[in-house]
Design a binder for these strands. Structure first.
Length: 798
DNA sequence: AGCACGCCGACT
DNA sequence: GTCGGCGTGCTC
């Protein structure tokens, strides 16, 4: 028997199956989708079996055997293996990358170089001996001091280099204590009268004959320590065993089961349409304004799917996977739910994944990668906040969860629901064309009015001599809410806009030495950091160029806003939520729940507060600067701005108290701002579509972004230029090729970056041409040190 | 990608 | 004479 194996080596010539002989003794076990350890060249690597067959085209005498099977049950099923091949084609990625992304990180290989003793301890140089005293190997990282000596030994062959493959598959084990079944068994045991602890435990045993209990539980219940338990186990009063267990992610509140809510008329209509399409591979676009009750429709549809005995995947953007959302699902579906999000440790994620694999759960709620949940009998896939860019992975494999969802829906013959208050133009256009079925919710579920949105012209404020970042109206409103003991959310649209340091004498802005970008000022650590390569240095006290002392910190980081805010409302209790304050695990939830409990008057934050905030006492939302996303050199700038404003405004007045929103802008007449004011999606869609049509962007054209990097500017320009000429010769005349041009950030980590854009409507040779391009890259440019990256349907072209 | 092989210049 | 630089080629 022969296995086709995709090995864990991300390189173009390796990106195909390699044949291996399956050793006789594991022949019955080996199955496609299992991980294997195989010899590859002169090392060992991990790989996935993708196929099992009888014969190989490769010279049978040169076939190597699989070294070791890593699984008993395949980690990938037939469906996912097929999907990986499709994904490889669609996103132009390595098949191994597609396979890896489908599996929890704990199952991916970790390679560690080490030195193994290949002789008697006495044979090697004496300074080395202590290193090998009790071990047969040492790790590379522990050997830096004696590297030269090791090298000599390696030449003699007394020590050999080796790579160890480790997996972090820590299955959590718990100690189970099984108490003896009969009184007689216990009575036969003798315990000294002064062994008080043991007697205490015996007493517990007598009361709980035949029971099995986790040792940590037992310690608590019987009030004894672990050694006491062990002594009784030694005497035969109980038995001990290890049992596999799951890590239990802590939730902040207890969960009570909740029944479905009564659907409104509009909700019911949408629900009925979806329900009648269960068991068909249909895609719905559920367009419902903020607060229209989309989640309740999801919950009830999932309920129907479960009643059919099928499973459901619910995807949410990473950022909105808040405990609130998780709790809502657990309240309805109890322990049938697994949750996958970035806040979990690798072990916790693995545990949640195993619950899915073992069919112990029926619903998974998770971020992007949860689309690969290994369900066998999928009945429904939901993408909430369908327009969110986090559904597209921004490094290889550059897949979009929406495309994966639709592929799986066809495989399982089940529907997909794309939900959003502000659908992506692509999805809405497809709904208009009838590719997706459009479902609309126009009213808020509790019939609350939309918040009153006021657009504040900041140019006007400036003319009136207000140079602060708070308009008079907003400042007044904040004070008003403070008096009324209501809560305010301030949103800082920080994207493309960060704090930098400028010398007021010579105008120098501190730049990263490796990248073409200014350094960002980090107040908490008093450091200047580069967000692209990680370079950092201490904040200067004098200008590095002209040695002037007149340096100034610019920009509006959240910390800066916090300081300004303290001047406006010194008595307010402010909670700040940004990358700095949410770095630690669970910090996100802590801040949100503190705010929800009314421990602060104002929540100040960036993007991450735009979603999932649902507290009744929030009656004011302030958007400090609506424009920062608007003027980015990207075709999605207006769409992003519209979505963000709608999203943020939706945070106000979600309960009985009406909400007010102030949007501060320097371009208040822009349609993305004026139309977001009243959540007028249709007019926005029409106007933005006209822009896209005129400029040749999605949904009118498909886009491919190709990026080139090299440490030499001339070389990368030459490479980009040649590629564009090649593409023009290959692709159809109707296809537009834009560029090449230097990327917006033209240098990162001392490498120059160029890019070009392919825009096409129909291009049957596209995938082939991309594959060809990679071949050329491999043969001509790779060895010159150039890199090539292809992004199909990029979310942004900056 | 990683690793060995192999072919020329700088040292003990 | 040997160490070591990195070009080239291969991996079932």
């Amino acid at each position: 028997m022969i296995a086709e194996v995709i090995v864990d080596v991300a390189a173009h010539p390796i990106d195909r199956p390699f044949d291996y002989a399956i050793p006789k003794r594991v022949e019955v076990l080996a199955e496609p989708g299992m991980r294997v350890k195989v010899p590859f060249g002169n090392r060992k690597v991990l790989g996935f079996i993708t196929k099992i067959k009888q014969t190989s085209d490769f010279d049978p005498k040169r076939l190597k055997p699989i070294h070791e099977l890593m699984d008993v049950i395949p980690v990938l099923n037939e469906e996912l293996l097929q999907m990986a091949q499709w994904m490889k084609k669609q996103t132009v990625c390595f098949e191994i990358a597609a396979l890896q992304v489908m599996v929890p990180a704990a199952l991916r290989a970790k390679y560690e170089k080490r030195f193994v003793l290949n002789a008697e301890l006495e044979e090697i140089a004496s300074p080395l001996r202590p290193y090998f005293e009790n071990r047969s190997f040492i790790r590379l990282q522990d050997a830096v001091d004696v590297y030269a000596l090791l090298k000599k030994e390696m030449d003699k062959g007394t020590i050999i280099a080796d790579t160890d493959i480790q997996q972090q598959t820590a299955v959590k084990k718990v100690r189970m204590i099984h108490i003896a079944d009969t009184v007689e068994a216990l009575e036969a045991i003798e315990i000294r009268a002064n062994a008080k602890q043991q007697l205490k435990l015996m007493e517990y045993f007598f009361k709980n004959l035949g029971q099995s209990i986790e040792s940590s539980q037992l310690q608590k219940l019987a009030g004894v320590s672990l050694p006491t338990i062990y002594s009784l186990v030694d005497k035969g009063a109980a038995q001990i065993s290890n049992m596999e267990s799951y890590r239990d992610p802590k939730l902040l509140s207890t969960i009570e089961h909740k029944e479905s809510l009564q659907l409104t008329g509009a909700q019911q209509t949408a629900f009925d349409q979806i329900e009648s399409a269960l068991n068909t591979p249909k895609t719905f676009l559920l367009h419902g304004i903020t607060g229209s009750g989309k989640t309740e429709i999801y919950l009830q549809t999932i309920d129907q799917v479960l009643k059919q005995g099928k499973e459901a995947i619910m995807l949410v953007p990473e950022i909105s996977l808040t405990p609130q959302m998780t709790i809502r699902f657990k309240e309805r579906f109890g322990d049938q739910v697994a949750v996958l999000h970035s806040g979990l440790s690798a072990g916790e994620k693995y545990d949640e994944w195993r619950k899915i694999q073992r069919a112990e759960v029926k619903v998974v709620v998770g971020a992007r990668s949860a689309i690969f949940a290994p369900f066998q009998n999928l009945g429904l896939i939901i993408l909430d906040e369908e327009h969110e860019s986090s559904y597209k992975q921004d490094d290889s494999p550059r897949y979009h969860a929406r495309d994966m969802a639709i592929w799986r829906s066809e495989y399982h013959q089940c529907p997909v629901i794309l939900g959003s208050a502000t659908p992506s133009l692509e999805s809405y256009a497809r709904a208009q064309k009838g590719v997706y079925e459009l479902l609309v919710l126009e009213k808020r579920a509790k019939n609350q009015p939309l918040p009153a949105v006021h657009i504040v012209d900041m140019r006007e404020e400036l003319r009136n001599g207000n140079r602060s970042m708070f308009s008079v109206q907003l400042a007044d409103a904040i004070r008003d809410r403070l008096d009324k003991k209501q809560q305010t959310v301030l949103f800082l649209n920080k994207r493309g806009y960060s704090s930098f340091v400028l010398c007021r004498d010579c105008g120098t802005v501190m730049q990263c030495p490796n990248c073409d970008i200014s350094l960002t000022y980090h107040r908490s650590s008093e450091m200047m950091k580069c967000h692209y390569c990680g370079y950092d240095e201490r904040v200067p006290t004098i200008c590095p160029e002209c040695e002037s002392e007149h340096i100034r910190f610019f920009g509006t980081g959240t910390q800066k806003v916090e300081e300004e805010l303290a001047k406006v409302v010194p008595e307010a209790r402010v909670l700040r939520m940004d990358v700095d304050t949410t770095r630690t695990k669970g910090a996100h939830e802590k801040i949100l729940s503190a705010f929800g409990e009314g421990k602060a008057d104002i929540l100040l934050g960036t993007q991450m507060i735009a979603k999932g905030l649902d507290f009744p006492n929030i009656t004011l939302v302030g958007v400090l600067s609506a424009d920062t996303t608007l003027h980015l050199p990207d075709f999605r700038a207006a769409e992003k701005t519209y979505q963000l404003l709608t999203q943020v405004s939706g945070r106000a007045g979600r309960d009985v108290l009406p909400g007010t929103v102030f949007v501060q802008s320097y371009t208040p007449e822009h349609y993305a701002i004026t139309l977001a004011k009243d959540q007028l999606y249709e007019p926005f869609y029409e106007q933005e579509m006209a822009m896209r049509r005129a400029s040749g962007y999605p949904p009118y054209y498909f886009v491919v972004n190709i990026q080139f990097t090299h440490e030499d500017l001339m070389t990368v320009a030459e490479y980009a230029d040649q590629t564009v000429r090649y593409l023009k010769g290959q692709l159809s005349p109707n296809t537009l090729i834009i560029g090449p041009s230097a990327s917006l950030i033209s240098r990162v980590n001392n490498r120059y970056r160029y890019q070009c854009l392919i825009k096409y409507k129909k291009e049957s040779k596209l995938i082939d041409t991309m594959q060809q391009l990679i071949k050329i890259h491999r043969t001509e440019w790779l060895k010159k040190g150039a890199t090539l990256s292809i992004d199909m349907n990029p979310t942004s072209v900056m």
